[in-house]
Computed example of a mutant assay.
Amino acid sequence: MYEISIEGKLRYASIKIEQVTNELPGILFLPHWHHQMEFYRMLEGEMMLTIIDETVHVKSGDIVVVNPNEVHSAERITASVSFVLYQIDLFSLTDNLADIQQKFLNHMFHQRRYFLKRDPVLSTRALPFLMTVEAGWRAGNVEAVESATRLMLVELLRQVKTKYPDQGAYKTYKHTLSQLKPTVSLMTFRYQERITLDILAEMTKVSAIHYSRLFKGVMHYTPIDFLNQVRIAKARQLLLTTELSVGEIAFQTGLRDSNYFSRFFKHYNQMTPTAFRKKYRIS
């Protein structure tokens, strides 16, 4: 039901790999962004991956890239999905410029602002490299993992790249993300607190109307619906991994009243919390 790490641990590698399998109803993951680059290699099932304003239909065998600082989210199409996620920290990977590959990557990503296109060619070109990266990960070989990752990115940038078309628009987009980041963090990690639109707008130092427009423009949710989805995701996790009562889970997710929580949960999951726990929990 949940994320399963691929065998092998690399404490200091600039790439992390995990296999994700999900059979639960609802959104696969909510809109978010980070400075790492990600590759999704689909193993089974189908999902819709939304990246900024582009929605990509991802099916078994596909490989899709998410460049750094691109807001992305996903919904399942099939009842179950399974994919391998490769997360690459480009800053870590390019911090030592003694190597010609690292110089090239630093120039492309950090100076010229090139990024990888979501193109069918990418799947064909990336697969053998990702398999090599994964083999190094399983063997616990940091140098092999990072060397294969650099080689992959160099080759892909030579063949499947494009430049940010409008540097002004890109700077505006990144500025908006920086504006929203404190409120997204509040809703993601302190969802049990009382959070209102006015509180979120005040944190961003704009009006509530302007904040709502900014938020929905990049996250594709209203702020309150995003908060509701965060609370529902946490409620599902607690139902499946703890012995807490429905009332206790209601309190821990910031919804307080168990009757309201049950109605709220059913609205998003088409079943009560108790029915959800009975159907999906693995004893």
Rank of each mutant, 00 (worst) to 15 (best):
Y2D: 10
Y2E: 10
E3N: 08
I4F: 09
I6G: 06
I6P: 01
I6W: 03
E7L: 12
L10Y: 04
L10D: 00
R11V: 00
R11G: 13
S14F: 06
I15D: 07
E18R: 14
Q19W: 00
T21R: 14
N22C: 10
L24V: 04
P25N: 06
G26H: 04
G26D: 01
F29K: 01
F29D: 01
L30H: 11
H32K: 07
H34I: 04
Q36F: 10
Q36D: 07
M37G: 06
E38P: 02
E38M: 12
E46S: 15
L49S: 08
D53N: 15
H57C: 05
V58T: 08
D62Y: 08
I63K: 08
V64C: 10
V66M: 08
N67W: 06
S73V: 00
R76N: 11
S80W: 02
S82I: 03
Y86P: 04
S92W: 05
L97Y: 02
D99W: 09
D99R: 12
F104V: 02
N106A: 13
R113Q: 12
Y114W: 13
F115R: 14
L116W: 05
K117L: 15
K117Q: 15
V121L: 14
L122M: 06
S123H: 00
T124R: 15
R125N: 11
L127W: 06
L130N: 06
W137S: 09
N141V: 09
V142L: 10
E143I: 13
A144D: 08
A144S: 12
V145C: 02
R150I: 08
L151I: 00
L151K: 13
M152S: 12
L153R: 13
V154E: 05
E155Y: 07
R158W: 06
R158Q: 14
V160P: 02
K163I: 13
D166A: 10
D166V: 01
A169N: 07
T176Y: 03
L177A: 07
T183N: 03
V184Y: 12
S185A: 13
M187E: 00
M187A: 04
T188R: 14
T188G: 11
Q192L: 04
R194W: 07
R194H: 14
I195Y: 06
I195D: 05
I195P: 03
T196G: 06
L197G: 03
I199N: 03
L200E: 04
L200F: 04
L200K: 05
T204H: 11
K205G: 06
V206I: 08
S207N: 10
H210D: 07
Y211C: 06
R213M: 10
L214N: 03
L214A: 01
F215L: 05
V218F: 14
M219L: 14
M219V: 08
Y221M: 13
T222K: 11
T222H: 13
I224F: 04
I224P: 03
I224N: 04
Q229V: 02
K234S: 10
K234H: 15
R236I: 02
L238N: 08
L238K: 14
L238W: 10
T241V: 05
L244V: 01
G247I: 02
E248V: 06
F251I: 12
T253H: 08
D257Q: 12
N259K: 14
N259A: 14
Y260I: 11
Y260M: 03
S262Y: 02
K266Q: 14
H267I: 01
N269C: 13
T272H: 02
A275P: 00
F276P: 00
R277K: 15
K279H: 09
Y280F: 15
I282G: 07
